[in-house]
Structures are given as structure tokens and as C-alpha cells.
């Protein structure tokens, strides 16, 4: 029981954070395929973790969290910078570029981990997993809760920014700053999730797509729904991860990677069908 309560809280916070992160990124970049997984954010955070483990191995977890957040912010910033240089923001070129950026960060992580003999440890970090959720660690996720609430506070502005730069400036909004604030908030929260539970793939991509398809793009309305849906989906995935190979656990990241992969493909096929 003592491990169940923290675990449940951790799942709810992480699931909602990833969904909100994906939703916010999709709105601000005006691209439905952008999420922490496809903007280089998660891979940058992981690179931060690897470097932290190499150079300050005895550092307390909150310091490692800070390092991962800094890397996630830098990685996402680089993504935005590259995005600005893309003239025609084709719907798939943008996530493709983000994925490649992530691949570069990942290559650096693997390179370092290989040299240090940390490769298997790296694999463990990467796959999102709640089996090790215990007191003293999951509390960091309260930071995530704070960041998610702050994101909600800006919801209206993010929606306006997502309509277009001209529209936003016309309404007196500093578009560039709004995008930076939004991307910064959600990059930070997904980095904290990476530190505490690992990478949770595809949740940030799939949940917002389904929720906005049904309820529209006004963040003030859909953001809470996305948060709840993300939490529920992650809880379900967690139950699945515990029952597939009972009494062993399959990391929840794997369950999501496979199930979410199919769901994502289905969504893409659908959107293609409608556009083309």
C-alpha cells in the first residue's frame, strides 16, 4: 500500500503533464505532430541526465533535475531556432526535424554512455517506469503540477498565439515571448518527468490529437480535459504493464510505445485522408 499511493500520484501527475506539454507545443508551433518526443525535448533531458551521472555522480536528485531541465530548455530552444529557419513549415517536416534533433542528442547520450559503460543504465532511464516510484523521489513531480497549473494560467494567450503571429500581435500580445514562455514551461515539466520516471513516449502526441479533434483548440477548455485524459491513459497503461507479465512488470513506456504507435499511425492516416 505504501508504494501504491505515491505511485498513483506519480502516474496522474506525469500523465497529465505529458498530455498538457504535447497540447501546448502543438498549439504554439501550429503543428499537430509536435510533442516533447518530436521536438528533441526528451532526448535533450536524457543527455542532461547522462552528463549529470558522469560529472556529478553524487549529486542529489534535485540537482540532476535542474541539469535535465536546463538541457531540455536548451534542446527545445534549438528546435524553435531551427523552426524559425524553416520557411515552409510543412506539417511533417517540422516533426521530422525535431525527431532528427532528438536523434543527434540521443547519439551523444549513447556515445557518452558507451564510453562510461552506462549503456544499460541509460536504457533503464529512458524507458518510463513507475515500479521504482517511492517517497523521496516522486515528490519532485509536484514541481510538474505547479508548472501545469501555470500553463493553464496562460491558456488563452497560447490559443491566440496559435492562431498566428499577426493575429496575436494585433491583439497586443508579444508573440515571441508567449511562445517562449509556453515552450519553456512544458519543456521543463517534461524534463522533470524524464528524471523521475523516464521517457513516456507518444502520450503527448496522441492524447492532444484526440482531445482537440473532439473539443476544438481552445486551450482553456481542452487543457483540463487533456490533462485528465493523459492521466487516465497512463493509469491504464500502468495497469497493463503490471498484468501483461504478472508478477513481473513491463515498463509502462514500452506499453505506450507499442499501443501509442498504432494509435498515432491511425491518427495520421485519418488526418491525411481529410486533407488530401
Amino acid at each position: 500500500m505504501t508504494s501504491r499511493i505515491p505511485r498513483t500520484i506519480a502516474i496522474i501527475l506525469a500523465g497529465s503533464a505529458m498530455a498538457v506539454a504535447g497540447l501546448t507545443m502543438q498549439t504554439l508551433t501550429r503543428n499537430r505532430f509536435v510533442a516533447p518526443d518530436t521536438a528533441g525535448t526528451l532526448d535533450a533531458a536524457t543527455l542532461g541526465l547522462v552528463l549529470g551521472a558522469m560529472y556529478v555522480p553524487s549529486a542529489p536528485i534535485y540537482l540532476r533535475m535542474v541539469i535535465a531541465v536546463v538541457f531540455a530548455l536548451a534542446g527545445t530552444g534549438l528546435f524553435l531556432l531551427l523552426l524559425q529557419r524553416l520557411q515552409f513549415r510543412d506539417i511533417v517536416v517540422v516533426p521530422l526535424m525535431g525527431l532528427m534533433l532528438g536523434a543527434v542528442f540521443n547519439a551523444a547520450s549513447v556515445f557518452l554512455a558507451y564510453r562510461e559503460g552506462l549503456l544499460q543504465t541509460l536504457v533503464t532511464w529512458i524507458s518510463g517506469d513507475f515500479s521504482g516510484t517511492l517517497r523521496g523521489r516522486y515528490e519532485l513531480l509536484y514541481v510538474v503540477a505547479a508548472l501545469t497549473i501555470l500553463t493553464y494560467w496562460f491558456a488563452e494567450r497560447f490559443t491566440i498565439a496559435g492562431i498566428g503571429r499577426d493575429f496575436a500581435v494585433n491583439l497586443g500580445l508579444d508573440h515571441g515571448r508567449t511562445v517562449l514562455i509556453g515552450m519553456g514551461l512544458v519543456a521543463s515539466s517534461s524534463a522533470v518527468v524524464v528524471v523521475v520516471v523516464g521517457e513516456i513516449p507518444l502520450l503527448g502526441l496522441v492524447v492532444p490529437n484526440i482531445v482537440t479533434l473532439a473539443l476544438g483548440d481552445r486551450l482553456r477548455r481542452v487543457l483540463p480535459v487533456a490533462a485528465v485524459a493523459g492521466a487516465i491513459l497512463l493509469l491504464l497503461a500502468d495497469i497493463g504493464s503490471r498484468t501483461v507479465r504478472h508478477p513481473y512488470e513491463v515498463p509502462v513506456g514500452v506499453v505506450l510505445g507499442v499501443v501509442g504507435g498504432f494509435a498515432f499511425l491511425a491518427i495520421v492516416l485519418r488526418s491525411r485522408g481529410r486533407v488530401g
Binding site: F33, V92, L96, L99, Q120, V123, T124, I126, S127, P201, L202, V250, P251, G253, V254, L256, G257, V258, G261, F264, L265, V268
Partner: peptide, 20 residues
């Protein structure tokens, strides 16, 4: 491309699981 990326992701997820 998306199909490929997603399949890569799935292969990698399962690979990571087995590696553990």
C-alpha cells in the same frame, strides 16, 4: 516516413524492454 518513424519507435521500445 511517419510509418517508419513510428515502427522504429515501437521496435526500440520493445528492444529497451528486453534489454532490461
Amino acid at each position: 516516413m511517419l510509418a517508419g518513424v513510428v515502427m522504429s519507435g515501437m521496435f526500440r521500445a520493445i528492444g529497451n524492454l528486453v534489454a532490461r
